[in-house]
Amino acid sequence: MSSWLNATEWAIVALSLKVSLVAVFVTLPIAYGLAWVIARRRFPGRMVLDAAVHLPLVLPPVVTGWLLLVAFGRSGPVGAWLEATFGITLVFQWTGAALAAGVMALPLMVRAMRLSIEAVDRRLIGAARTLGASRWHAFRTITLPLSLPGIAAGAMLGFARSLGEFGATITFAANIAGETRTLPLAIYTGLQVPGSDLMVARLAVIAVILSLGALLLSEWLVRRSSGGRAHVL
């Protein structure tokens, strides 16, 4: 396969994997926390939080990218703070592409995890409490393991969504070769350049393989973690 893809194309695939994996791993705990709060807590503003989490799903991705630019750009409130405090700049960097991918993947991840948390029988948590478990211990030993299939499903969906992320990425992180030009951006760029048909086709095949791989891997993980009782597909 190394002769099949040239070095530039390998670099694009590697960058895409790096961006998507970082996006999923950083978003995962945030998404699970949000999913738990929305599933288990009743408070004023819960609907607003739920709607805000789902916003990236319904907004034009370009608008999400622009909002990220406003907030996380060098002169944006969050961006300026990050740069002044930690010396971190996200805009036009691969980390910015990961941020855009993570934000776009968030609603899908929250949704999958929330459903699995809601499916955990609360009576089991009551039983755990009477057996001596604190709220936190009951969460760790009951809710968390029983919602693993949802975590795996959410991670898979988030990874696939991150791999495909285009609109918010190109708006926020731009299309910089070697830095933010992920698979979809490279395919889009290739389509603008005459004579790139074969490269576009090869990258498209890679995209299909990676997405299918993510799907099958998550299915395997879910079946394994649930002793064959749950599945994604």
Partner: peptide
């Protein structure tokens, strides 16, 4: 708090933990 009442509760609907084998339910 429930965890500090030291009550041994046998629920009508049992509430065994489905992801733990019997031994792990007993040792919980």
């Amino acid at each position: 708090a429930p965890q500090d009442r030291r009550a041994g509760v046998v629920f009508q609907d049992m509430r065994l933990f489905p992801h733990r084998k019997v031994a792990a339910n007993l040792s919980y």
